[in-house]
């Protein structure tokens, strides 16, 4: 574990560390260095705790235990139970578009920028191992049939952002911005009554520079969360078609005509993340879907 760095900028402290395969940043609206260091440490601990607990790359956590249970009942802790309840609610709300059992598709889809597209046969085989309703979830006991797995990673980073923000808010009732790899949450308005200036990162911005007035890359985040779902880094390219890493659990294929990235602002980072993912899966209809949700969003096509 690398030690976090702390730096003072104009009127706030910026703490940085690495977690969940992303650069993590905590902006602290205070001049108190000791407090900033304490908050940063708490943030890093929390991020690593959540990563450790829910990462599907580890063999010593609850996710591994559930996925290797071969249909045996596994009793889970309170936090995992809450996330499973949440996964179920998201599945129901999205009519099956958001499904934490869809992770097995990664056995066929390797998003490494290459042109290796799986065959339909491969996908069909995996599809029989997908579907939240096939899982028995009776809090606190889960039974996952052999061959199926759950992956809470789809909401893990956003959840970690929200959890960290809540934890830091308890330590110090000041304005703090948590930023894990571009997914953000802020606790409250800053001392000067303003929000944090946040930029929507995008590759498409360059194209639009000609149309100066149409680009709005920066805005002020007073309260709430922002999350981005996109394929700017993780994708496959074949015959000129770009396959997004967001896979549709109903078809086993990436959403067609999805935006390059979708950024959503909502009450919490987790909520924003789900909305961004659901929007990606709407493909061509991403913008229309988000409009119907009456949230602020940015789609890059």
């Amino acid at each position: 574990m690398s030690s976090p760095s702390l730096e003072y900028k104009q009127d706030h402290w910026v703490g940085r560390f690495q977690a969940m395969a992303s650069p993590c940043e905590i902006l602290i609206d205070s001049d108190d260095q000791l407090l900033a260091a304490q908050l940063l440490q708490a943030a890093q601990d929390e991020a690593l705790r959540i990563e450790h607990k829910f990462s599907r790359y580890r063999q010593d956590n609850i996710t591994y235990q559930i996925n290797q249970s071969h249909g045996q009942a596994v009793e889970v802790d309170e936090e995992t139970a809450s996330l499973l309840d949440y996964a179920q609610q998201c599945y129901e709300l999205s009519d099956g578009v958001f499904d934490v059992t869809s992770g097995v598709l990664r056995q066929a889809w390797k998003f490494d920028g290459s042109d290796r597209i799986p065959t339909q046969q491969q996908i069909d085989t995996l599809l029989s191992n997908i579907g939240w309703p096939k899982i028995s979830w009776q809090r606190p006991v889960i039974r996952v049939p052999a061959g199926m797995e759950i992956d809470l990673g789809g909401i893990g980073k956003e959840y970690a952002v929200d959890r960290t923000a809540l934890l830091l808010e308890q330590i110090a009732p000041i304005s703090i911005l948590v930023n894990y790899g571009g997914d953000l949450m802020t606790t409250k308005a800053r001392r000067n009554g303003q929000g944090w200036i946040v930029g929507v990162e995008s590759t498409a911005m360059f194209k639009k520079k000609k149309n100066k007035t149409l680009t709005k890359t920066e805005f002020e985040l007073l309260q709430g969360g922002i999350a981005t779902s996109g394929d700017t880094r993780r994708y496959l390219l074949k015959n000129g078609i770009r396959y997004s890493h967001i896979l549709d659990p109903r078809t086993g294929w990436p959403a067609k005509n999805a935006p390059h990235s979708v950024t959503v602002a909502a009450g919490t980072c987790t909520e924003a993340g789900i909305l961004a993912t659901l929007a990606m899966l709407q493909g061509k209809q991403a913008e229309a879907f988000l409009k119907a949700q009456e949230v602020r969003f940015w789609c890059q096509r």
Binding site: D85, L93, E271
Partner: peptide
């Protein structure tokens, strides 16, 4: 979703 998220957190 807002309700579910509030309950989760």
């Amino acid at each position: 979703l807002a309700l579910a998220t509030a309950s989760l957190l």
